[in-house]
Design a protein around this nucleic acid. Sequence first.
RNA 1: GCAGGGUUAGUGAAGCGGUCAAACACGGCAGACUGUAAAUCUGCUGGCUUAUGCCUUCGUAGGUUCGAAUCCUACACCCUGCA
Length: 263
Amino acid sequence: MESEPIITPLIAIVGVTASGKSKLAMQLAERFDGEIICADSRTVYKGMDIGTAKPSKKDQKAITHHLLDIINPDETFNVREFKQLALDAIHSVAAQDKLPILVGGTGLYIDAILFDYQFSPAGARRSLHNPRHLKYQELTAYQRPLRTNSLVIGLSQSKDQLQVRVKERVEAMFHKGLINETKTLVQKYGWEAPGLNTIGYREWQEYFAGRQTLEQTQDLITLRSLQYAKRQRTWFKRNNSIHWVDDPMKVVDLVTTFLNKKQ
RNA sequence: GCAGGGUUAGUGAAGCGGUCAAACACGGCAGACUGUAAAUCUGCUGGCUUAUGCCUUCGUAGGUUCGAAUCCUACACCCUGCA
């Protein structure tokens, strides 16, 4: 199943939150007749639209997006499932003679595809250091070669830019009714649901409990998003296969060259 | 005006004569990451510099003491009670 005929060209777009990945992906998909595969651990959840900045219905109608809304917020998901699903999606896109574009900020998911992660058998030992981690494989990260026929593009952004963009994005989420979306989700699934442990949602807990103002909630979400971006930056930093660009316009050339070379 | 309480590093907050460059939390910086990853975990966070080193900090100015963030005096600002 996992033996992909490694000839399918793949474009991957990475970057921290609010860096403009989705928009760029749309442009590329339109331009190069592609379909988007979302490598995002949060947009897989149904009903979590505003808080995850999920691609709009309009965008989804214009371009096929894979791996969106595939599970309920009270269900769990993991890299292994992701890898299988994403691989399937890549194949089906390629089978239609279209260009698969892998987009997302979940570094682990991206790398599972890019570096063909091999997962431990069930019952693997947990790391003493961090119980949430399974004991390390024999291979160190990035020791494996990058998936052949892949172009990895990273959207870089200065910290100042990022700060502004995140602030605006969170503001927009509030206007779109993030509070109601959260309320609905909590009523339906409860705070314990895996999906609710997400920036943009869990911060409302204190607000609903009356221990936090609306403004404080908004500031907190902005802060947590920025901290998240920091972690993403650290993750991507060590992957030197990424072609970092600060101007989305330059990407078209990159992709064109990449596709021509492959013919 | 009188009587109390307070002023500590970016923020909040411990400390109440030596073992204090000063707990802890948050924030910040850096890092990790192969079945929870928008999660989880680790290190650093006064300066110099990286040493069982030096220097400068605990409202301001003095004083007591071998030794003060810790005691005393004065001043400044803040809060509370009585006027």
